[in-house]
Computed example of a mutant assay.
Amino acid sequence: MVALTIKVSEETFTPRQQAVLTAALDLLVENGDGLTMTAVARRASCSKETLYKWFGDREGLLTATVQWQAAKVRMPQVDRSSLTARRLRESVEQFARDLLTTIEGDISVTLNRIAVTHAAVEKDRLGEIVLENGPMAIRRRLKPILEAGREARLLRFENSEDAYRTFFGLVVRDVQIRLLLGDRTLKQTDIEAEAKAAADQFFALYGAD
């Protein structure tokens, strides 16, 4: 059984493994559901034995692939002892930009479409893998930042889970469902504006006076 959740950053995978995961993501976009260890090995110019050594099996490869994609939403770095309102705002807005940039890409749209289809017919654990290593992992990475803001008396909320869900809703709104249905009108200028608007609305709701 492959562990579903690990903390992922650029340092989690070697440059060679990153190249393999990028090849796997490209194949998912091109071929959808037809991802195989053989195809990934061929695209990445490595042996299947190496893939099995690194990732265990196809499910392990899919898990690592989703984790690598989710890692594109960067973890804001804040110093809890000297956190300022400006630094907190910059971190939250950066997170919003990264989140929108990641979910609007072809890779995330393809992964989500496949995962929804698989979950509907209980074909395999891809839906669970995407949920745990995508949205749930992103939530676990931002909540400590919000809690740091509360500790610094820059934010006010009783429950960090509620605060995170509000923030996520303000950022994503209906964007993800529109993307899944084929709307590709979200541009970089839209991302910048929407990230800023989401941060404005979040701090209006939870910012300390």
Rank of each mutant, 00 (worst) to 15 (best):
V130M: 03
E158G: 15
P144E: 03
V130A: 01
E128A: 04
R140N: 08
L142F: 14
K143R: 15
N133Q: 12
R153D: 14
E132T: 12
E147F: 01
E147G: 00
L142W: 10
G134Y: 14
R141V: 15
R153G: 00
E151F: 07
I138D: 06
R153V: 09
R153N: 13
G127E: 04
E128H: 05
G149P: 08
R139M: 15
R140D: 11
G134K: 06
V130S: 00
L146P: 05
L146C: 06
I145R: 01
I129G: 00
E151R: 03
E151D: 15
E151A: 12
A148K: 02
L126C: 03
P144N: 02
E147A: 07
L126E: 05
L155Y: 05
G149W: 02
M136A: 13
L154H: 01
G127I: 12
D124A: 04
N133W: 08
A148G: 01
M136D: 14
G127M: 08
I129L: 04
M136L: 14
E151I: 03
R156F: 03
E128V: 13
G127H: 09
N133C: 14
P144A: 07
D124H: 09
L142T: 12
R125Y: 13
F157V: 13
L146D: 00
R150M: 12
R156Y: 03
L146V: 15
R139H: 11
L155V: 13
R150E: 09
P144S: 08
I138F: 00
L154V: 12
M136H: 13
K143D: 00
F157E: 02
F157D: 05
L146S: 02
L131A: 07
G149N: 01
L146Q: 02
L155H: 03
R156S: 03
I138C: 01
E158A: 15
E151L: 03
G149Q: 01
E158T: 15
I129K: 01
L155T: 09
I145Q: 01
E158K: 14
L155Q: 03
E151V: 07
E151P: 08
D124K: 09
R156G: 00
L146I: 15
F157G: 07
R139P: 01
L126W: 08
E147C: 05
P135Q: 07
L131G: 00
R140Q: 09
R140C: 06
A152F: 08
D124I: 13
G127K: 10
L142I: 15
L155N: 04
I138A: 02
G134F: 15
D124V: 10
F157L: 09
N133D: 09
E128F: 08
R141M: 10
L142G: 04
L142A: 06
K143V: 15
E132W: 06
G134A: 12
G134V: 14
G149I: 13
F157N: 08
D124C: 11
L126R: 11
R125L: 14
E132Q: 09
L155S: 04
E128R: 05
L131S: 04
G127D: 02
